[in-house]
């Protein structure tokens, strides 16, 4: 289901006439038709933010509605000379003014659009104010940024279409649409019908790698899950294949037989990394080959990311014999060889 929003009822008048809306008792200004909702947000960043948050909470949490898109429509003021009066623009980026000469850093973006819009903190009635805002955007309204912000928080695609009713500045008529309200609303309605006909919808950008893969046999922490997703996504891009194909290239039987479950996760991540970068596997194998004769109670450790050339040897001494063993081991310890691998030794890569 879609949600349409307008700042003023007048802007929505043609919609209210054309569709058979039922008002929702829980929130004044929220209407339901057979295939979408319509919200009157009120003018200004803060009233609109309050109204949209209430509407989205109600629809999503109480009525369990799956909102697919939020379309904000309405009229706006032009800030730049290149803007045509009466034309409906698709808005690309939405900015907001906090107070005069101070902007909100955060901006929001639609999936399509040609021009940028700034939501001002008050009506723009002077050229000085208009000039300041024109450095950021082509159009000015009072609410769209708040609506985009709420939509992002509720993870709903947001699009915005604005008709230019006037130029902001000294000569503005304060966007007073009373006289021409029906004309503007008719144009917006016709535009909306065209949109419907063209079936313009937001592109799906993110293709999740989380398909039907089952990792219930693994103990995966949040950071490991993050890493796993990234590695799988990288592998899918690298080989132009599905996550299922990627996993089929790994020794999954061997990995799944490892115990405990934590070990399985480490092995899975390691094998995925090696699939993407066979060089890493060669380096680990070369390092392990060099230290393979290390006595059992000695533990030789190196930086798993190979950034640090330091090698750590850990052991507990229990006897003079072990002390002698350590001395012998250290005498021939292949430090140079290990460090040479870490420094890019040709034979190890």
């Amino acid at each position: 289901m879609k949600l349409l929003s307008f700042a003023h009822k007048n802007e929505a008048s043609s919609f209210l006439e054309a569709f058979n809306y039922t008002p929702l008792a829980e929130l004044k200004g929220l209407f339901k038709s057979h295939d979408h909702f319509l919200l009157i947000t009120g003018e200004g960043q803060i009233p609109a933010l309050g109204q949209i948050n209430k509407a989205l909470s109600l629809l999503i949490y109480k009525y369990q509605i799956q909102l697919t898109e939020h379309i904000n429509m309405g009229i706006c003021g032009g800030l730049r000379e290149s803007i045509e009066l009466g034309k409906i623009y698709r808005v690309r980026s939405l900015y907001a003014e906090k107070s005069f000469n101070h902007m909100q850093f955060q901006s929001y973006h639609t999936n399509q659009g040609d021009v940028d819009l700034v939501s001002s903190y008050e009506r723009v009635k002077s050229d000085k104010h208009k000039d300041m805002l024109s450095a950021f955007a082509h159009l000015v309204d009072r609410e769209a940024w708040s609506l985009a912000r709420a939509s992002q928080e509720f993870k709903i695609d947001f699009n915005c279409y604005k008709m230019v009713s006037d130029f902001a500045g000294n000569d503005t008529n304060c966007f007073n649409i009373q006289e021409q309200a029906h004309k503007f609303s008719d144009k917006l309605y016709d535009f909306y019908k065209q949109l419907e006909d063209q079936n313009i919808s937001a592109d799906t950008i993110v293709k999740s790698t989380e398909s039907a893969l089952d990792f219930s046999n693994f103990h995966i922490t949040a950071s490991q899950k993050n890493k796993l997703d990234k590695l799988l996504q990288s592998a899918c891009i690298a080989f132009s294949k599905t996550p299922e194909w990627v996993l089929a290239q790994l020794p999954m039987n061997e990995i799944e037989n490892l115990k405990p479950a934590k070990k399985r996760t480490s092995a899975l991540l390691f094998e995925l990394e090696c699939l993407l970068n066979p060089v890493k596997k060669n380096i680990v194998q070369s390092m392990n080959e060099v230290i393979k004769n290390t006595p059992k109670n000695f533990h030789v450790n190196y930086d798993p990311e190979f950034e640090n050339t330091e090698i750590n040897i850990k052991l507990s001494l229990h006897s003079e014999k072990q002390k002698q063993e350590l001395a012998n081991y250290l005498k021939d310890f292949p430090l140079n060889k290990l460090q040479s691998i870490i420094n890019g030794d040709e034979n190890a890569i």
């Binding site: 990234k230 990288s234 993407l276 190979f306 950034e307 420094n343 890019g344 030794d345």
Partner: peptide, 29 residues
């Protein structure tokens, strides 16, 4: 999001930069 650069196996270095592991990058250089 679909750049081939994502298939590069970077590590996070001492300076928080993402790059190839030391053996690989020194070998490449």
């Amino acid at each position: 999001p679909t750049s081939n650069l994502h298939q590069q196996n970077f590590t996070t270095g001492f300076d928080q930069k993402k790059r190839y592991s030391r053996p690989l990058r020194l070998w490449m250089l």
